Amino acid sequence: MNQRAALARIRLNPDSRAVERDLHDATQMHRTLMRLVPDGLGDSARLRSGLLYRLDITEDATTLLVQAASPLDGQGLPAGYGHMEVKDLSPMFTALRPGLGVRYRIAVNPVKRERLPLEQKNQRGKVIPLAGPEADQWWTRRATEAGLHLNSLLPTPLEPARRRGRDAAPLRHSLVRYDGTATVTDPETLTTALLSGIGRGKPYGAGLLTLAPAAAA
């Protein structure tokens, strides 16, 4: 399966006002990152570009990982936003095979749909965030469907994605990061999941699955 995608690592500048704004407003972050992909993609630009992102925070740095099937051009970022490096993911897709051991990381928005009584069968229930064992079960099921057998998982609750602004509609997407090891079971299905992302909340920092060789752990 011949697929192309690029992954950018942006080490954010903590002194940038644009960075500070984006870290507190998921909608603004999404708008900033969409400036990395080509113009003219239409109303479904994120979907067409395949843009996914994740915010990784450590004691030393705050890093944005941005993946897209379209070319990523750092010239679209605000001045002084951060240092960006881009790599081609084609070798990773080529290396995927059944039985391959990998380390993974993903931030997800695990949810379920509320069940309604029969008299409301034509209505849709509320979307309910999951936490704890229910969220772990959700990720295990979605990973299996994506062509991964999980050998381990470590959940880390993250700050919810939020939107700011006086006139903005409220937004609060719960996020959980999972780290662990896994075995590839279906490379083709896994490639599709890597390119399209997993779960809800993709415009707000959820769904980007990254892999590394397990031997590098």
Rank of each mutant, 00 (worst) to 15 (best):
M1R: 14
M1C: 12
M1S: 13
A5L: 06
A5N: 02
N13R: 10
N13H: 11
R21F: 14
R21N: 15
R21D: 13
D22G: 07
A26F: 09
Q28I: 15
T32R: 09
M34A: 08
D39E: 15
G40T: 11
G50S: 09
L51D: 02
I57C: 11
I57N: 06
I57A: 11
A68D: 01
A69T: 12
S70Y: 12
Q75S: 14
G76T: 02
A79Q: 11
Y81C: 08
V86P: 04
D88R: 01
A95K: 08
A95W: 08
L100K: 08
L100Y: 04
L100G: 06
A107Q: 05
N109A: 03
V111F: 01
V111A: 03
E114L: 15
R115S: 14
P117Q: 07
P117A: 07
P117H: 08
E119H: 15
E119R: 14
K121Q: 13
N122I: 15
V127N: 06
I128T: 10
P133H: 02
A135T: 00
D136V: 00
Q137H: 09
Q137D: 05
W138Q: 02
W138D: 01
W139C: 04
W139G: 01
W139I: 01
T140A: 13
R141W: 03
R141M: 06
R142K: 13
E145R: 00
H149W: 10
H149P: 07
H149C: 09
N151M: 05
L154H: 09
T156I: 12
P157T: 02
E159N: 12
E159D: 13
A161G: 05
A161F: 02
R162W: 09
R163F: 08
G165F: 00
R166I: 05
R166W: 06
L175S: 09
D179L: 08
T181I: 07
V184W: 00
T185F: 02
D186S: 05
P187I: 01
A193R: 06
S196A: 14
G197T: 04
G199Q: 05
G199D: 05
R200V: 03
G201L: 10
K202A: 03
P203F: 07
G207W: 05
G207S: 06
G207D: 04
L209N: 11
T210R: 08
A214R: 11
A216S: 15
